[in-house]
Amino acid sequence: MKKFRFAGALVGAVALVGLANSPALAGTDVTVYGQTIKTGCAHSSAGHFASYGEVFTVYDECTDGMDAVVKVDVAPYQSGGGYDFAIWNPNGHDGSPVTSNRSYAEGTGVCLQAGVGEYRSGEWGNWGSWSCGTA
Rank of each mutant, 00 (worst) to 15 (best):
N101M: 11
P97F: 12
G18A: 14
T134A: 02
G47A: 05
T28C: 06
L16F: 13
W127N: 05
V69R: 03
P97N: 03
H48L: 12
G47P: 10
A114V: 06
I87P: 00
T36L: 05
W127Y: 14
F49H: 06
V14K: 07
S121K: 00
Q78K: 14
G47F: 06
F4G: 01
L16R: 00
I87G: 00
I87L: 15
D94L: 02
N101C: 00
S51D: 15
V74R: 07
F56T: 00
Y119Q: 15
C41S: 06
G18T: 09
W127L: 14
S79N: 13
G95A: 12
G82S: 04
V72L: 06
N91R: 08
D94W: 10
S22F: 14
V98K: 12
G34K: 01
G128R: 04
A68G: 07
P97M: 11
L25W: 00
G81R: 12
N21D: 07
S44L: 10
P90D: 15
N126Y: 10
D64F: 02
A75G: 04
G125R: 13
Y104L: 13
Q78D: 07
P90A: 10
Y33H: 15
T31L: 03
D29E: 05
Y83H: 13
S129G: 07
W130R: 09
Q113F: 10
K38L: 06
G92D: 04
G107N: 02
P97C: 00
A105T: 12
W124G: 08
R120Q: 02
D84P: 11
Y59D: 05
R102N: 12
G12Y: 10
L112N: 07
P90K: 12
D67I: 01
L112S: 02
V55R: 15
V55F: 05
D64N: 07
S100G: 04
G107S: 02
V14Q: 00
G117T: 11
T39L: 04
G117C: 01
E61D: 12
S103M: 02
A9L: 12
D29G: 09
C62V: 10
S79Q: 12
L25G: 14
T57V: 14
E123C: 03
A114N: 00
L19W: 08
G40V: 07
G65V: 02
G47D: 00
G8T: 09
C132G: 04
V58N: 09
R102M: 08
G92M: 08
D64K: 01
V32E: 02
A15G: 11
A24Y: 11
Q78V: 12
T36N: 12
A24S: 15
N126G: 03
F49Q: 08
H48N: 10
Y83R: 03
Q78C: 05
G115Q: 04
G115S: 06
C132K: 01
S51T: 09
D60V: 04
N21G: 04
Y33P: 03
C41P: 05
S129I: 13
I37S: 11
D84E: 05
A68P: 03
